[in-house]
Amino acid sequence: MSLYSPLHERLVRFVQTIVWDKEEARDIVSETILAAYEHFEKVKHHEAFLYYLFTIAKRKMNRRYVQQKRQSPWTDELNDKAEDTSPDALKQLQIKELKDAIAHLPEKYREPLVLFEFSGLTIKEIAEISNLTENGVKSRLVRARQQLSEILDGSLHEKAS
């Protein structure tokens, strides 16, 4: 647990940003923790634990996405909140919009973006997990941000019209 504790919040943010459903996100986190515990002997160096943990989480999420198509974050509840003009409701709405935008990013951009912006991993760490060069990660991050802005812009225009 001493290895896991500093990575806990990073892991959960990674999963909950990509997976919309709260219970599903919890399932994936607990499955990831148990899988990491069961096969802990495979980790040869303590430094490798981070890559090991996030790789398990990635695989678990990918498997879920193959099984069930990505769900739209827009629900009746969100539609109701869109009518609401209170500050909290607006924040909630912005977060949901952002999540929706992230969900529409291609996977090769989505993952580095979430790992960098929400899990707080460094470029080097993301490069290790994604099996990319550091420059490759950087370029994907830039493109992810651009596409995210475009998506958000497009959704706003759509709503306005």
Binding site: Q16, A25, R26
Partner: peptide
């Protein structure tokens, strides 16, 4: 700002 808000949301686990 939205990123910051997102990072301030409580974790689910």
């Amino acid at each position: 700002n939205v990123f910051a808000e997102m990072n301030n949301t409580p974790i689910v686990f």
